[in-house]
Each structure stands twice: as C-alpha cells, then as structure tokens.
Design a protein around this nucleic acid. Sequence first.
DNA 1: TGTACATCAGTGAACGCGCGTTCACTGATGTAC
DNA 2: TGTACATCAGTGAACGCGCGTTCACTGATGTAC
Lengths: 224, 224
Amino acid sequence: VHRTGSIDLVTESDSRPGTRVERKERTRRAILDAALRLCEDSSLVALSLRQVAKEVGVVPTAFYRHFESIEDLGLALVGESFVSLRAVLRDVRRSDPTFEEIIDTSVESLLDHVDRQRSHFLFICRERFAGPPAVRAAIRHEIELAETELATDLEHLVTSMGASPWSGEDWKALANLFVRAMVSTVEAVLDAGDDGQAQKEVAERTRTQLRLVLVGALNWRSRP
Amino acid sequence: VHRTGSIDLVTESDSRPGTRVERKERTRRAILDAALRLCEDSSLVALSLRQVAKEVGVVPTAFYRHFESIEDLGLALVGESFVSLRAVLRDVRRSDPTFEEIIDTSVESLLDHVDRQRSHFLFICRERFAGPPAVRAAIRHEIELAETELATDLEHLVTSMGASPWSGEDWKALANLFVRAMVSTVEAVLDAGDDGQAQKEVAERTRTQLRLVLVGALNWRSRP
DNA sequence: TGTACATCAGTGAACGCGCGTTCACTGATGTAC
DNA sequence: TGTACATCAGTGAACGCGCGTTCACTGATGTAC
C-alpha cells in the first residue's frame, strides 16, 4: 500500500485541502487569474462572467460569492497590477544606483518586472482607455500617485547631480515625462512579444532616450 | 403655394435625395459616425452590429451592405483616423516654423486637431491595445509609418540647427520619443476632457517637456 | 420619350446561442455546548 | 469527545434578452432598347 504522502496528493487534486477560508481564497485567486488570461486579447468590457466561471471550472452563479460584477473584479485587478508597477520604482530606489548606473538599472528593472508580470502591465495598458469607467478612473488615479512618487525620487537624484534649482512646475513636467517613457516602453515591450531581438532593440532605444532626456535635464534652466 | 426649393427640402428630409450611389455613401458615413460615437466609452470589441444599426436607423441586416463585420468597419475607422493624425504633421511642416516657433507651433497644431477630431484620436488610443487583432495590427503599422515620416522632418530640423552628426539609431530613437510624446499628449488632453484649465496645463507641460528634449538633442553626441 | 428588365439598399421574420441574474438547493466545514 | 445546529461556497434549473447570421422579399433607381 502507498504512503500517507501520496494519499494526501490524491486528496489535494480531488477535493482541495485547507479551511473554508483558504479554499475560498484559492477560488478567488483562480477567478482573478482566469480573468487576466481571458481578457488578454480583447478587454474587460468584452469579458463575460460565464466565460470566467467556465475557465475556472465553477458554475456561473458561484462568481457572485467573490465579486459583484466584472467591473468589481476589474478594480481588484487594478489594485494588484499597480503593486507590480510600484515594485519597479521600489527596486530602483533600493538599489541606490550611482549617476552612471541609474539609467541601466532602471531600464533593466522595468523590463525584468514587465517580463515577470506581463499580464498585469498588459492589463493596465489596455484598460486605461478601454476599461469600464470605474476601472479607467482607478487606473488614472494610480498613475497620478506613481507620478508623485517618482517626482520625489527625481528631485533627490537631479539635485544631487548639481543641476540648477527648478520650479515646481518643471519637476512635475519631468516626472510626467519619465512616467510616460515608462508606460511607452512597457507598451513597446509588450508589442515586441516573445521576440528577444526586438526586446533588446526596445531596451537599447529606451536607454538612448532616457540619456537624451537626462542630458536635457542637466542643461536645463527653469523659466528660460 | 410653395416654391420648388421648399418641396426639395421636404423630399430631402423624407426620402433623402441623390443617386443610389450617393445615398449608399451617406448610409456608410452614418454607420462610421455611429460606430465612432457608440464605442467612445468602451471599445470596438464590445460594440454590436445591432447597436450600430439601431443608432443609424436601419435594420440590422442592412449593415452587411456596407461592411462584412465590426472588425471590417474598424479597419475603415483606422484609415480615416490616421488621416487626422497625419494632418498634424502636414500642418507643422507646411507652416515651415523657425527654431523659436517650432515647439509652440507643433503643440498648438496638435491640440487643435485633437479638439476637432476628438473621436478619431480617442479611437486610436483605445483600440491600439483593446481592439480586435486586425485593428491593433493596422494601428501599429500606421504608427510606424508616422514615425518614419517624422524622423525625416526631425533630421532636417535638428541638422539645420547645427547639432553634431548623429547615428541612424539615434534618429530612430528621437523620432520615437517625439511620437510617444505626441501620443501621450493626446491621451492627456483626452483625459482632461472639456476642462479648459486642465487642457491649458497639459499644453504648457507638453511645451516644457518638448523644450527639455530639444535641449537634450542639441547637446547630444552620438555614441557618447 | 416610353417601356421592359436588372440592380441592389434596405426590410422583416426566423434561428439557435450565450448572456446576467433569480432562486431554492446541497452538503461539507465550522462552532457552540 | 460527541452531538446538534449554523454557515456558506458552490449547484443547477429557469427566465427573458440581445446577439450574429440566414433567407426570401420589396420597391425605388438605373439601364438598355
């Protein structure tokens, strides 16, 4: 006869172990993952509750035990997608790069996160304009927060390089420029898909662009 | 009794005048406009043929006299939307601005076109990531063409300002940076909606950003 | 100019299908005693 | 530890609705003679 271990495995694959709370959480997770996967080549607004339920392997009505609607599910996905995006900023900050390294470090970290959380970044790009109104609003809000966060980092960085003092408006414009560069790069990487060569070209082009912006910033005088 | 003119007007509002070809073209136009309006707050992938037909005031099956499918209609909308986008580049080129004017002229032209062809620009932003696969591919292709077009313009401009010679890669990177700035500005303006104050802030911020990039470009040395 | 015929944009009925949502339910898990 | 009851994630039938697509049609416009 077999060991207890193998019996556990069978139990695991058949009826799924854990407390009621754990099992509910696992189903919720499966719903979020299924939704992320299913809307990858269209949009939340074209995703049906029944498709999601079918993909997860539950009956359509079970969906309501976890979310009120697809829009509600979308808001949860916005939350966890921006955890992925913030992780990029956090990693760059933690690595505390020198002047010479800053661009290479940032681009590398960004591409690394995009590669590992591809569906989160795709989700943001797609639903930012095409999602249900509440989802669009949530994404816009999160992007503003990320911009503010980055503005602080940039102020420390550029000031430490001895650039001349800037106006508040100019800081905002620079932070916005970087956030846009980030979003655009994510878009380009996602466009490139699995093509490794294309991804390298995107990375190299992004580095060139960021260097160019940095040259501009270091030669900048506010209110010229 | 009334003049022939007024009888014509009645005829016009009742049964619509013109040859069969003209009337067909008018219906086609109405379908395109209705689709542009209806998908404004979701996406083509969530738009139904029946909604469009209802908005136009024809029976659903009449749709097939003009387009094979919603995707087919989408490709037609990509075509006319990029006519609007190209008009921006063309206007800037035709105005033949001096060094001092170039940024103000470009931003003004861009905002002017976005304001007048709002739904076309919204359509591109939205469907670029959320549209049906064929529509996404068509948009990507058109953006690449616009980038090439802009690269030529930029080369003339920056060279005429006496910057040092650049590598081909760097031209591509700069053109891409400007196209992205353009797309991002369009997105920001569309986000701002009808808020005139917010629109002015977006315009001012964009000008600051373009100046910063221009400062970078003029201080740039290829392969530093 | 008048007539007979062809074209074809738009009609309207019909189809099977997937949708969101309701409701009463089941039965394993959790809790109170 | 054992029992009786409460909770609640997931079930399954049913509903009315809008969907894309088919088909045979109508009747005004266009064309050939």
